[in-house]
């Protein structure tokens, strides 16, 4: 399998072994990864609950979403970069792991849904059923967190 041989090659690279041998790197990068997911959760919570008309309904939804969207993107960049370091350090733990790929699919879905649906959801004539998408996105971020922790066990 290509993924298998790529993982083996990555594992054998000097940078991969440096990440593993330097004992503080993995815990530090994992901590940064959790801080970044906390920023995603905080921004998503306020934005999605506003879109679902649960929170801060006296503020225009567009203002609330625009306030937190940059934080969501910045946090996702930090998650991507710290995540790459963790993959390089332990390729077998992630690349050969079904839960890891499920997590990637969920992140991609949440990212695409946020990018594509934000504008239509903010329109005055958005159907009430569209609010369900906000709840779905919150559920997806929670699933991402569960997948992230379960990668360590599968």
């Amino acid at each position: 399998m290509f993924v298998q041989s790529f993982g083996d090659w990555l594992y054998a690279t000097p940078i991969s072994s440096t990440f593993r041998v330097t004992t503080w790197i993995i815990p530090t990068v994992q901590s940064i990864h959790i801080l970044a997911i906390a920023v995603v959760v905080g921004s998503a919570l306020v934005s999605e609950l506003r879109l679902a008309s649960v929170l801060a309904n006296d503020e225009p939804a567009g203002n609330v979403v625009r306030r937190y969207l940059p934080w969501l993107w910045r946090a996702l960049v930090v998650l991507l970069l710290s995540g790459v370091v963790l993959i390089v350090a332990e390729p077998a733990r992630t690349l050969g792991n079904t839960v890891f790929w499920a997590k990637m699919a969920l992140v991609l879905f949440a990212f695409a849904a946020t990018v594509l649906l934000r504008r239509p959801l903010l329109r005055e004539d958005a159907p009430p059923a569209a609010k369900a998408i906000s709840w779905l996105l919150l559920a997806v971020w929670i699933a991402v967190i569960f997948c992230g922790r379960f990668i360590a066990y599968t």
Partner: peptide, 18 residues
């Protein structure tokens, strides 16, 4: 244990995020 850990991470991200 992993389920409790996941709930713990979810909780701390909500605490820290807010």
């Amino acid at each position: 244990f992993p389920l409790l850990e996941s709930l713990h991470v979810l909780a701390i991200t909500l605490v820290f995020g807010t």
